[in-house]
Write a protein that binds this DNA or RNA. Structure first.
Lengths: 256, 256
DNA sequence: CTTGACCTTGACGTTGCGTCAACGCTTCAT
DNA sequence: ATGAAGCGTTGACGCAACGTCAAGGTCAAG
C-alpha cells in the first residue's frame, strides 16, 4: 500500500494536486491506516495517471471528471471536441506569433503592417519623427477601431500621396508640431487643406470611412491637443465654412 | 474626453479590465470630472490598445508593465523571448494533440502506441479481455514510471513472445483471472514460469529494467490482488526458491 | 419625477493548484 | 529514551486576470 507521496510520484504529480483531486471528488478518498494516513493501491495510481494525462492536455478538471466516468462513446466524443479546441488554440497562438514578429523590430506595437509601411513612406518624404509619432498613435486607434477596413483606408492614403498638394503639405510640416498659434504658415496649411477638401468633395469621397461619431470626435480632440497651432488651423477653416477634421465637411451657409 | 466604457470599447476590452489595470498600476489613473467619473484622453486609448495587444499574446501583465516602460532594445528582447515561449507552447500543444489522437479511438488513455500494439498482439493470441485489462493498467503505471525506456521494454516483451513456452503460458491463461487458489492449472503456470526464469537467468537477463524498489513492490502487490490464484502461484514459486514477481529471482539457499 | 443607463468602490468567485502554518506519527541516530 | 528529521494530517491564504454581483451616486430623456 502506498502513501500519498508515493502515489503522487508514481503518477508524476504533487501531493497537493492529489489532495485537490480528493477535494473536488475527482479521485475517491482511499482508506486510512491506523494513524490516519491515506493508503492507496494500484488502481488509484492508474486513475491518477489518467487524470494527469487529460489535465495536462488542458482539459478542465470538471470535464476530466465527466470523461473518466463516461462510456467509451462519450469519451471519444469528448476527446474529439478537446482536439478541436486544441487546433483552435494552435491557430490562435500562431496568429499571435505573427503579430509579435511584426512588432519585434521596433515600436510598431498594435499596428498592422500596411500602416507601418505608410509611416515609413512619410518618413521617406522627410516628415519629422515627432509628427510621425502623432500619426502613429492615431493609426493605432483607427486600426483597433476598424481592423478590417484598415487596409483600404491606408490604400486611399497612399493614393492621396500622388497629389502634389499633399506632398507639399507634408513637406511644409516640419516644425508644425511645435508651431505656435500665430505662425504664418498655418494659413498656408489651411489653404492647401481647403483645396484638397474641395477636390475631395467634388469627387464625392467624403464619407469613405464609417467611424462612429464618438470615435471621430476622439480623433478630432487628439488632433487639437497635438499642437498649439491646431486650434488656430481649425478656426481658420471654420471661418471659411468648414467643420470637423476627421470628417472635414462644408457647412451649409445659412442666411443671416 | 472619454468615459471608462468609451475608452474600453475603443480599445476592445472591458471596463473591468481597465479598472484592473488601474489597480495594478499598468494604466495610470486619469483625472476625474466634477462627479468623480474617470475622464480619459487619446493617450490612454493608445496605451490601453498596446496593453491589450500584449496581454492578448499571453504576456503576463507584470511583464507587459516592464515591456511598455522599457526602451526599444529591451522591448525587442522581451518580444523575442515571448515568441520563443509561444513556439514552445505550440510544440507542447501539438504533442498533446498526438497523445489525444491515440486515445480517441479506445480507452488507451495514457498509453504509448507501442504498448497498445503489444496488447493487441496478446489479444490476437486469444488472451481474454479481462486479463488484458490487468496488463493494460500495469503498463500504464510502467509507462508513467519510465517513459523513455518503455519502447525498449516492450521490444523485449515482443521478443519473449517468440518463445514457445511463453506462447503456451498465454494460451493457458483463459480463466486465470477468476481461477480459485486450488485450481490445478496453477502448478502448470508455476512450472512454465520457473523454466522461463531459469533460462532468463542463464542468459543474464534479470535486471534489464531498473525500477526502484517501491515501484517493483507496487507492481507485485497489483499482481497479488489481481486474482485469487495469484497468491498460491507465488507461494509455489517461493517454495521452489524464487522470490518476487516483477523482479523474479532465485534466493540463495541457506543451510538449515 | 421617474426610469434606465451610466458611473463609483468593495468584495467575493473562478481555476488549479503552491505554499505556509500548526500539529501528529515514525524512525533513526544518539 | 530522547530528540531531530522527515513523513502525514487539516486549514487557510495566495496567485492571475479578470467576471460578477452589491449598493449606491449621476446623467440624459421622456
Amino acid at each position: 500500500m502506498l502513501t500519498i507521496s508515493q502515489l503522487a510520484t508514481y503518477a508524476g504529480v504533487t501531493t497537493r494536486a492529489v489532495r485537490h483531486y480528493h477535494q473536488i471528488g475527482l479521485l475517491p478518498e482511499p482508506e486510512r491506516d491506523q494513524s490516519g494516513y491515506r493508503s492507496y493501491d494500484a488502481d488509484a495510481v492508474v486513475r491518477l495517471i489518467r487524470i494527469h494525462a487529460l489535465a495536462d492536455a488542458g482539459v478542465p478538471l470538471a470535464r476530466v471528471q465527466e470523461l473518466l466516468d463516461a462510456g467509451p462513446e462519450e469519451f471519444a466524443d469528448g476527446v474529439q471536441e478537446i482536439d478541436k479546441e486544441l487546433r483552435g488554440e494552435i491557430r490562435r497562438v500562431q496568429r499571435t506569433r505573427k503579430r509579435l514578429a511584426r512588432l519585434a523590430g521596433g515600436q510598431h506595437l498594435a499596428l498592422p503592417e500596411c500602416v507601418v509601411d505608410y509611416l515609413d513612406r512619410l518618413r521617406d518624404l522627410g516628415v519629422e519623427e515627432q509628427y510621425i509619432e502623432l500619426e502613429r498613435d492615431a493609426w493605432i486607434m483607427v486600426a483597433a477601431q476598424v481592423p478590417d477596413a484598415i487596409e483600404a483606408v491606408i490604400a486611399r492614403k497612399h493614393e492621396d500621396l500622388n497629389d502634389p498638394d499633399v506632398i507639399k503639405l507634408y513637406s511644409l510640416l516640419n516644425g508644425a508640431v511645435e508651431m505656435p498659434a500665430d505662425d504664418a504658415r498655418i494659413v498656408e496649411f489651411a489653404d492647401i487643406i481647403e483645396r484638397l477638401a474641395i477636390r475631395a468633395a467634388a469627387a464625392g469621397e467624403l464619407d469613405a470611412t464609417a467611424f462612429d461619431d464618438g470615435f471621430a470626435a476622439l480623433l478630432d480632440a487628439t488632433m487639437l491637443n497635438s499642437s498649439p497651432g491646431a486650434e488656430r488651423l481649425l478656426a481658420i477653416l471654420e471661418a471659411r465654412g468648414w467643420q470637423g477634421w476627421t470628417r472635414l465637411h462644408q457647412v451649409p451657409r445659412s442666411a443671416g
